[in-house]
């Protein structure tokens, strides 16, 4: 059964007619056309679907949209500044070429933003711990760690 829900995403409010059990991920991708968050496992095991809820990195693949209405939602698209320039974390991932296929990149960037907003000088271990949920099959890990450190210097 559909309900009309109000969702706050990247600074804008959206009215959506949707089954409130629908996980947030499908709403972002299919109703709002925000492609950044990805379906990886649907089981909260891989981090591909990471978004920020009130600044905290959270997995969106099982979170019912009716619960997401409470939060200010930020997606990777919402990191881009008004003038079109990249957020320092996005820029650092580009600078370090920290990807291969890039499917996991959304989760890596979003978790890193959450980490750096609370700690602007994380240690190697803190970065690894924060990104532990995020799977990268291509093995771009060392570049990703480097990108987070580069971003920390820019912030």
């Amino acid at each position: 059964m559909n309900n009309t829900l109000s969702l706050h995403v990247n600074g804008k409010d959206y009215e959506i007619d949707i089954d409130p059990d629908t996980p947030l991920l499908y709403v972002l991708r299919n109703e709002l056309g925000l492609n950044g968050a990805k379906f990886g496992c649907g089981l909260q095991q891989c981090g591909a679907c990471t978004v920020l809820l009130d600044g905290e990195s959270r997995l969106s693949c099982q979170l019912p949209v009716r619960e997401a209405v409470k939060f200010k939602i930020r997606t990777i698209e919402g990191l881009v500044r008004d003038d079109g320039s990249l957020h320092p974390v996005q820029a650092a991932f580009v600078k370090e070429q920290a990807a291969q296929c890039g499917y996991c990149l959304n989760g890596m960037v979003m978790a890193s933003v959450a980490l750096l907003e609370g700690n602007n000088n994380p240690s190697d271990d803190e970065i690894r711990k924060k990104l532990a949920i995020n799977i990268c099959r291509c093995g771009a890990h060392s570049r990703i760690i480097k990108a987070v450190k580069t971003a920390a210097q820019e912030l």
């Binding site: 299919n30 056309g33 925000l34 492609n35 950044g36 968050a37 990805k38 379906f39 997606t75 990777i76 698209e77 881009v80 990249l86 996005q90 991932f93 580009v94 070429q97 920290a98 990807a99 890039g102 499917y103 990149l105 959304n106 960037v109």
Partner: peptide, 21 residues
């Protein structure tokens, strides 16, 4: 030389077959 597709990815642009609509 850097790959250009990485910037498209961090912007959340549609890059993958999964993103086709």
């Amino acid at each position: 030389l850097p790959r250009k597709d990485i910037e498209a990815m961090v912007r959340g642009e549609a890059v993958f077959v999964q993103d086709l609509r």
